[in-house]
Simulated assay, not measured.
Amino acid sequence: MGIEERDRDGNIAALKAVAEQFAVSVTPHLQALIDPADPADPIARQFLPDAAELETHPHELSDPIGDAPHSPLPGIVHRYPDRVLLKLVNVCPVYCRFCFRREMVGPGSKGLSAGQLDAAIDYIRANPGIWEVILTGGDPLIVSPRRMADVVARLNTIPHLGIIRIHSRVPVVDPARITPGLVAALKGGKPVWLLLHANHAAEFAAPEARAAIARLVDAGIPVLGQSVLLKGVNDSPEALTALFRAMVVNRVKPHYLHHGDLARGTSHFRVSLDEGQRLVAGLRGRVSGLAQPTYILDLPGGHGKVPVGPVYAQAEDDGSWRIVDPWGCTHRYEDPAAG
């Protein structure tokens, strides 16, 4: 799909300017899901370039979650004591228009060389406090089954590692990549968990995507969901309900709902924290607990993820608690264990 085909407003020059700054790619699978007659199509909004990306603000950052200060060597981000990111590649099958790593990924971006991968794995091996490795990028499931099997096998030789986690969009954006060979490459050693990034129920509409997820789950690989709260995509109770129910139906447990990061050129996707809290509160009691993710903010500067969901319990001066139920009614609760 060329820039001319993506242009909705006759502003080809602006879209080409976007493509010069930020990577653009849409898989044939996603192209088939887009309704060209719908100007608010949620798939198009996530993946097709928009002239609004040329608008930047002083608060926007090239490294919005602070990877760089916590990267002791190429491919490693060590922000938390017990886990590290291992960034295998810097390319993806598609490029989200709101990506927090949009300054670092895209065609021509170099993945880890053989020597850099050796050094990254040596770093993990030399730090016994590391219990979890998170394969990310880019999208790690873009690599060949052979390369994935090699990386997983090498990680499996590190005694202090407990699990391997993979962050990916591939099952819903390029499901043909989830082959039996790739699934087999993930199995046979330490437990592998997959965090699937999806933001709208339409991403689960295609039978190919549902089958790709089923191949992973049926192979014993637990799949969790992570989403980004995006204006014009899922910023309504109905859209979030449909998204999280679609995940649960496909045996994907909603895990994180991310507040949007302050990446350059993404203000048109931004929802306020106050509105995000109202939306999340609106799910409580109305949607199954299985479909409730944790609403989180990844603090700028590399200070980590923190839950920012609504508060339902507040201590009162008299020692009691004020509790808000799922329907917004307030109740007084005396805590007998408080003495």
Rank of each mutant, 00 (worst) to 15 (best):
V26L: 07
R210M: 00
I124V: 04
V24Y: 15
R146Q: 12
A239Y: 07
G10Q: 11
A120G: 11
C329A: 14
E55V: 09
R102L: 13
V133G: 01
S144F: 13
G181W: 08
A184P: 05
Y333K: 12
R177I: 09
I323L: 06
D274K: 14
H78Q: 11
I213A: 05
E53R: 15
G162K: 14
Y295I: 01
A201K: 00
E316D: 06
K231H: 12
I121K: 03
A44Y: 10
V143I: 05
P49V: 15
G2P: 01
G265R: 03
E238M: 06
A23H: 04
A114M: 04
H59A: 15
I65P: 00
I121N: 03
A51V: 08
K187G: 06
L230A: 10
G319Y: 12
L230N: 09
V271T: 11
A242T: 01
H29I: 02
E203Q: 07
V252Y: 00
A120Q: 07
A32Q: 13
R83A: 13
R6S: 05
Y123T: 01
D35Y: 00
R97I: 12
A202S: 02
V287Q: 02
H200T: 07
V94Q: 05
I76S: 05
A201I: 00
L257C: 01
A126D: 01
P336R: 08
I221M: 00
A14L: 10
L161T: 10
M1F: 11
P293G: 00
D317M: 14
N127G: 14
G138I: 15
P74Y: 09
L15I: 04
G75C: 12
M247F: 09
V89M: 03
A214N: 12
G282W: 00
D63L: 00
E55M: 07
P81T: 15
I178R: 11
V94E: 02
G285H: 05
C329Y: 13
G115M: 02
T157G: 02
A315T: 11
G106E: 07
E275A: 10
Q292V: 10
R6P: 01
T27L: 08
P175T: 01
Q277R: 15
D335K: 07
V94A: 12
R284C: 08
L196E: 05
F22L: 10
I164W: 04
R146L: 13
L141S: 12
A37V: 05
C96N: 03
T157R: 05
E132H: 09
V233C: 02
F204D: 01
L155H: 09
A313R: 15
V324C: 06
G138L: 15
